[in-house]
Design a protein around this nucleic acid. Structure first.
Length: 726
DNA sequence: CAAACCGGGAAGGCA
DNA sequence: TCCCGGTTTG
């Protein structure tokens, strides 16, 4: 066997990881150290060199994107189809398992997956049904509680009863919620994992079967696993299996949603014979950036320890801009990005990161004003959109009449005169008789238990769904979708909506048909509708389109994980914002914030910019925050302050006296004051009168942007322009 | 049924 | 301050 292609391109640590014959491996993979590469090459090693079956591998990731990438790279490298391999997300694999063994898992064959939206609706209904005050017990909070318990692998009955009314009540809600889910075979995201774990734990034969099959278990982003996920992995690994976990404790940023950094920290305690390999060579960033990253993260305690290095020493200094306020900050970022663009870089090579979504608005404004195309990450994904969920709701109902979730969703969408009164009747009867909403409706109609008007309206709905089901029989997926959006009147409904919103929704509905078409093409001969529906819930769909458009990337620090950009701007680097004030109390949280900063820094390849505002409006209040400790942790010699002493008035356009808040800027290193201020009116020999907009640079190179009344905005070098204050 | 109105809440977001 | 969800009102 020629092993050259598998190990030749690897560095020593990577090669060691790929070829180790230790039973258990902990790969501490620093940012940009090629961890996916190691995972894929390891698979190639196992299959091609060790002659292990591809079937013996179970590789698990967190996001569909990561899973997809892994699949692609395996196929490219090994030239084998990955269909038969178990490569996927925790949830995807759990779903696969439950699909195969639905009966053993105590589910109906057509069990439904609830996304968090569905879950919240259901939780709210449960709270109402058991007679709790909805205002005192918000659904969101209860949902949070339930999911938190499930992450820990705790069923409702095992939640420790307590005198604390919070726990007492939420335990009650959890119990009731569990019951409804069980009765209707509903499975939320947390339940997928919990149920999959219980299935294996309680079914000896099944466990044995899978343990014998999956002798090679590989886990990506191990630092993000929660209790139940790790338990599931250990169960599958058993005594004889092999587990390779790849992760970076320094990039654990999801503790707040149940991830346990202890899993990676204590891995070698659980598996004492495990070999630990550190991937510390970074292929992404400049030496300067890595130094900054190392300096920031080194202040955390209890790290497994790792020091990134790169062959590419030096690099641009980190620019730090101290803004007057958040508007000034945004404008500076826009200018900076624009200049990069004018120097020949694509907008898509730059990313602006922020701690919380609320910050994006001001930034967006600035980009719009500067005519910079941008794309915001996050937000509603395709299958989470209202109109799409409605369309799928009709299809779900066709598949399963007793799907109360979908019934509630679409029964009066578009409005067809089935109001709350009528629905209350339907719900009441359903509850009393323990039947589904659909059955209840049919009964109410047949036995004529409601007013004529209500009966007619409800009957129209029942017939609509019945007809729809008949008409989509034996059709292709895309035809089904088309039929559904047409005959349910969804297209018409949204077309009638005024404004761009309606248009966008119509487009989305049409795109749904398109999405179905491509799904058909991928899986020509499967039981497609149920599969497609499950897939839609599990994958929610990436925000597609506009990929090819060159746009500035804007996102939170959290969603930047795993990405990289030549230029990264870390905005809002202020105490109380980042680290967020909410993290101040719990000690562990602060370390997590620090790791988040580390993640942010290590996204940058060539150039890193940090900005902060001395004054910022938050929730309508003006606040003054100190510069973030994470900025101060970066060694001074790595940083150049950009126009650090420059201040400008809050509102550009409306120039007015700025009182004491605006300081003078200097045009020399020695701090000689030129007497100019931002927003100040000046006169130029050639261009006439204008207003100072912006400054840049220091000393003899200092430039100002002046908006001249007649000549427009111009950049001028201060030392040559001979401006006069007016 | 839509528009107007009101009050509470506001970190991060994968499946 | 703004946004969301829920309620009231025309």
């Amino acid at each position: 066997m020629d092993v050259t292609p598998i190990i030749d391109s690897l560095n020593d640590a990577q090669r060691q990881a790929v070829t180790s014959d230790n039973q258990h491996l902990l790969i501490l993979a620093g940012a940009g150290s090629g961890k996916t590469r190691v995972l894929v090459h390891r698979m190639a090693w196992l299959i091609d060199v060790q002659q292990q079956s591809p079937q013996s591998i179970l590789a698990v990731t967190f996001t569909n994107k990561a899973a997809r990438e892994m699949r692609n790279r395996i196929e490219n490298m090994l030239g084998i189809p990955t269909r038969s391999m178990w490569v996927g997300t925790f949830h995807g694999l759990a779903h696969r398992l439950l699909n195969h063994h639905w009966a053993e898992a105590g589910l109906q064959q057509n069990f439904q997956i609830l996304d968090s939206d569905d879950q919240q609706r259901l939780v709210k209904r449960v709270i109402k049904d058991i007679g709790l005050d909805e205002n005192r017990w918000p659904g969101r909070q209860a949902q949070w509680f339930i999911n938190g318990q499930k992450d820990e692998g705790i069923r409702a009955k095992y939640v420790e009863d307590s005198d604390d009314p919070f726990i007492k009540t939420h335990r009650k809600i959890y119990l009731a919620y569990e019951e409804v889910c069980k009765a209707n075979s509903l499975v939320d995201f947390g339940e997928l994992l919990l149920r999959a774990h219980e299935l294996l734990r309680d079914d000896e034969n099944l466990l044995k079967h899978y343990q014998e099959r999956f002798t090679n278990i590989m886990v990506d982003e191990f630092q993000d696993t929660n209790t139940i996920q790790y338990a599931w992995l250990r169960l599958l690994t058993g005594k004889s299996g092999s587990m390779m976990v790849v992760g970076d404790d320094d990039q654990s940023i999801y503790g707040w949603r149940g991830a346990k950094i202890e899993n990676i920290q204590d891995f070698t305690a659980t598996y004492p014979k495990a070999e630990t390999i550190r991937l510390e060579q970074n292929y992404r960033s400049t030496g300067t950036i890595l130094q900054a990253a190392n300096a920031v993260i080194s202040r955390n305690t209890g790290r497994l320890g790792k020091k990134l290095w790169t062959a590419e020493e030096g690099g641009d200094l980190i620019s730090l801009y101290s803004a007057f306020n958040e508007v000034d900050e945004a404008r500076f970022i826009a200018d900076f990005v624009k200049r990069r663009f004018e120097q020949g870089n694509n907008y898509s090579e730059s990313a602006v990161l922020y701690r919380s979504n609320a910050q994006s608005r001001v930034l967006e404004d600035a980009m719009l004003r500067a005519n910079i195309p941008y794309r915001i990450y996050g937000g509603h994904r395709f299958y989470e959109r209202l109109e799409i969920k409605n369309a799928l709701g009709y299809l779900r109902l066709c598949l399963n009449r007793n799907d109360d979730q979908s019934f509630e969703r679409v029964v009066n969408t578009p409005t067809r005169g089935i109001g709350n009164r009528t629905l209350e009747d339907v719900r009441t009867l359903a509850r009393e008789q323990g039947i589904s909403l659909w059955q209840s409706s049919v009964k109410l109609i047949e036995e004529n238990l409601m007013s004529g008007r209500a009966t007619n309206a409800l009957n129209a709905f029942v017939e609509l769904v019945t007809d729809l089901e008949a008409s989509i029989k034996d059709k292709d997926l895309s035809e089904m979708a088309e039929q559904a959006i047409n005959s349910a009147g969804l297209l018409e409904f949204h077309r009638a909506e005024k404004g761009e919103k309606g248009e966008a929704r119509v487009e989305n509905l049409l795109e749904l048909v398109g999405a179905c078409k491509s799904y058909e093409a991928d899986d020509p001969d499967m039981d497609t509708l149920p599969q497609f529906l499950a897939q839609a819930t599990l994958e929610a769909g990436d925000k597609q389109a506009e990929e090819h458009e060159d746009a500035l990337q804007m996102m939170t620090f959290h969603s930047a994980k795993g990405l990289e950009f030549p230029l990264v701007v870390m905005s809002g680097m202020e105490e109380n914002l980042f680290p967020h004030s909410m993290s101040a109390e719990e000690p562990g949280r602060l370390e997590e914030e620090r790791r988040l900063a580390y993640v942010g820094i290590t996204r940058a390849e060539k150039k890193l910019v940090m900005t902060y505002a001395e004054c910022r409006r938050i929730y309508g209040e003006e606040r003054t925050n100190a510069v973030s400790r994470f900025v101060r942790d970066v060694p001074g010699e790595l940083v150049e302050e950009v126009r650090a002493t420059v201040k400008r008035p809050a509102a550009p356009g409306t120039v007015r006296a700025t009182g004491g808040s605006s300081r003078k800027f200097s045009t020399s290193d020695k701090g000689v004051d030129t007497g100019f201020e931002l927003g100040q009116r000046v006169a130029h020999a050639k261009f006439g009168e204008g207003v100072i907009l912006t400054f840049e640079g220091q000393g003899a190179n200092a430039r100002v942007q002046v908006n001249f009344n007649s000549a427009g905005a111009k950049w001028l070098v201060v030392s040559y322009a001979r401006l006069e204050a007016i």
